[in-house]
Simulated assay, not measured.
Amino acid sequence: MFEHQSIVADRATDFEAEVFALEQTLQPLAAAPVPPRNPGFQFPRRVWLAMFACYAIFFFAIAAATGGSGHARFAIIISVLYAAVYFGVARIGARQAGPEDISPLDKGKMLDTFTGLMDKRAVYGQVLIVPLAVALFGMAILVITLSIGIGS
């Protein structure tokens, strides 16, 4: 008889322990989960604006250099749309992770890259060299066509 009561008592404490553990797992979180940090591209807004300005200068210069050629204008419009899709899809993809952190360059710090730390001048130089070259190329074509009388 005593043996039977001890088994029932052991089962009751096991049951209480299981209920307690289950209640602990079902408790709601005390605080909302923190979203993961999104470092993003870590470029200041000025870099993106300068890049877009360079491509706008290129497309404007090429459009002005080709004059009224319908085929050239069509190709330029397709190129502008392609560039808009290229940068637009990248922007949509980058925004999926939530708002980006402020750029370390805007905080007066250096940008940490795979090859080491870079200051603001080095970042601007490496990122903007190709867009600047493209803009200068477009301006050179415009100057050449205007000097020989081909353009509008």
Rank of each mutant, 00 (worst) to 15 (best):
residue 1 M to G: 09
residue 1 M to L: 10
residue 1 M to K: 00
residue 1 M to W: 07
residue 3 E to R: 02
residue 3 E to Q: 06
residue 4 H to S: 11
residue 8 V to Q: 07
residue 8 V to W: 05
residue 10 D to T: 13
residue 10 D to Q: 10
residue 11 R to N: 15
residue 12 A to P: 09
residue 13 T to E: 14
residue 13 T to N: 12
residue 14 D to W: 12
residue 14 D to Q: 11
residue 15 F to K: 15
residue 15 F to A: 15
residue 16 E to H: 09
residue 16 E to L: 04
residue 17 A to H: 10
residue 17 A to W: 10
residue 17 A to R: 13
residue 18 E to P: 02
residue 21 A to M: 07
residue 22 L to M: 09
residue 24 Q to V: 02
residue 24 Q to W: 08
residue 25 T to S: 15
residue 25 T to P: 03
residue 28 P to C: 09
residue 28 P to L: 12
residue 30 A to G: 13
residue 31 A to D: 05
residue 32 A to Q: 08
residue 32 A to L: 11
residue 33 P to Q: 08
residue 35 P to S: 06
residue 36 P to L: 14
residue 37 R to I: 02
residue 39 P to V: 02
residue 39 P to S: 05
residue 40 G to T: 04
residue 42 Q to H: 06
residue 42 Q to L: 10
residue 44 P to K: 02
residue 45 R to D: 12
residue 45 R to K: 12
residue 50 A to V: 01
residue 50 A to N: 04
residue 51 M to N: 12
residue 54 C to D: 09
residue 54 C to H: 08
residue 58 F to R: 06
residue 59 F to D: 07
residue 60 F to N: 07
residue 62 I to P: 05
residue 62 I to V: 11
residue 63 A to F: 12
residue 63 A to Q: 06
residue 64 A to I: 05
residue 65 A to Q: 03
residue 66 T to Y: 11
residue 67 G to Y: 03
residue 67 G to P: 01
residue 70 G to I: 01
residue 70 G to S: 04
residue 73 R to Q: 13
residue 73 R to L: 13
residue 79 S to T: 08
residue 79 S to R: 00
residue 80 V to I: 11
residue 81 L to V: 11
residue 82 Y to F: 15
residue 85 V to T: 11
residue 86 Y to M: 08
residue 87 F to N: 13
residue 89 V to Y: 07
residue 90 A to F: 06
residue 90 A to P: 00
residue 91 R to K: 14
residue 93 G to V: 15
residue 95 R to I: 00
residue 95 R to V: 00
residue 96 Q to Y: 11
residue 97 A to C: 04
residue 98 G to D: 10
residue 99 P to A: 12
residue 100 E to L: 09
residue 102 I to M: 12
residue 103 S to F: 07
residue 103 S to A: 08
residue 104 P to Q: 05
residue 107 K to C: 07
residue 111 L to H: 00
residue 111 L to Q: 00
residue 112 D to K: 03
residue 112 D to T: 00
residue 112 D to G: 01
residue 113 T to W: 01
residue 117 L to C: 09
residue 118 M to C: 06
residue 118 M to I: 10
residue 119 D to H: 05
residue 119 D to W: 02
residue 119 D to L: 03
residue 120 K to S: 14
residue 120 K to F: 14
residue 121 R to S: 15
residue 122 A to M: 14
residue 122 A to S: 13
residue 122 A to W: 12
residue 123 V to A: 07
residue 127 V to D: 04
residue 127 V to F: 12
residue 128 L to A: 06
residue 128 L to S: 04
residue 128 L to I: 08
residue 129 I to M: 09
residue 129 I to K: 00
residue 129 I to S: 12
residue 130 V to C: 08
residue 131 P to M: 08
residue 136 L to T: 10
residue 136 L to S: 04
residue 136 L to C: 07
residue 138 G to D: 09
residue 140 A to C: 05
residue 140 A to M: 08
residue 140 A to F: 03
residue 143 V to N: 07
residue 144 I to P: 03
residue 145 T to W: 04
residue 146 L to I: 08
residue 150 I to P: 03
residue 150 I to M: 05
